[in-house]
Amino acid sequence: MARGETTFDWADGEYTFALPLGQVEELQEKVGCGPYSLLRRLQDGTWQQSDIRETLRLGLIGGGQVKPVEAMRLVRAYVDERPLLENVPAATAVILAALVTPENEPQPGGGEAEEATTESPSPTSEASPPPSV
Rank of each mutant, 00 (worst) to 15 (best):
V66R: 07
V100F: 10
T55G: 07
S37M: 10
A91S: 01
L85G: 09
L60Q: 05
V79P: 09
L39Q: 08
L84V: 13
E81Q: 15
N87E: 05
M72D: 14
A97I: 03
R57N: 06
A71W: 06
I61E: 09
L84P: 02
R76S: 13
V94R: 00
A98Q: 02
P106T: 10
R73D: 14
Y78G: 03
E54M: 05
Y78W: 14
G64V: 03
Q49D: 13
M72Q: 15
D44E: 13
I61C: 07
A77I: 13
R53G: 09
L60I: 00
E81S: 13
L39I: 10
I95F: 03
P35F: 07
Q48A: 15
Y36C: 03
Q107V: 12
R53K: 14
R82W: 01
C33N: 12
I52N: 04
C33L: 12
A77W: 11
V88A: 01
W47E: 11
G63N: 05
L84N: 04
R41K: 10
P89W: 00
I61G: 06
N87P: 04
I52G: 02
V94N: 04
L42T: 09
Y78N: 14
V79I: 11
V75C: 11
I52M: 06
G62P: 00
P68A: 02
E81K: 15
T101L: 01
Q65H: 07
L58D: 03
T92K: 02
E70Q: 13
P89Q: 01
E103G: 10
L74S: 04
A90Q: 00
P102W: 09
A97Q: 00
E105W: 03
Q48T: 14
L96D: 04
A91K: 00
Q107N: 07
P89M: 05
A91L: 04
A90F: 00
D80E: 14
L85W: 00
G63V: 04
P35S: 14
V75L: 09
E54G: 01
A93F: 03
W47V: 11
Y36G: 02
G64M: 06
P68T: 01
E70C: 04
G64K: 04
P35L: 15
K67P: 07
S50W: 11
T92R: 03
W47S: 13
V69I: 14
E81V: 10
G34Y: 01
E70W: 08
M72P: 04
D44T: 06
D44C: 03
S37T: 12
R57P: 00
P68L: 01
G64C: 05
P68Y: 07
N87S: 12
L60V: 07
V88H: 03
A90T: 03
W47M: 12
D51R: 09
Y36N: 10
D44F: 02
L85F: 00
P35W: 08
L56Y: 08
L39D: 04
L56C: 07
Y36P: 05
L38H: 01
L99I: 11
D44H: 06
D51Q: 12
A77V: 14
Y78L: 09
Y78Q: 08
R40Y: 12
Y78D: 12
I52L: 11
R41W: 01
L85E: 10
Y36E: 12
Y78F: 15
A71V: 04
Y36V: 15
L99K: 06
L99G: 10
G32C: 08
Y36H: 14
V66I: 06
R40T: 15
R82A: 08
Q107Y: 05
A97D: 08
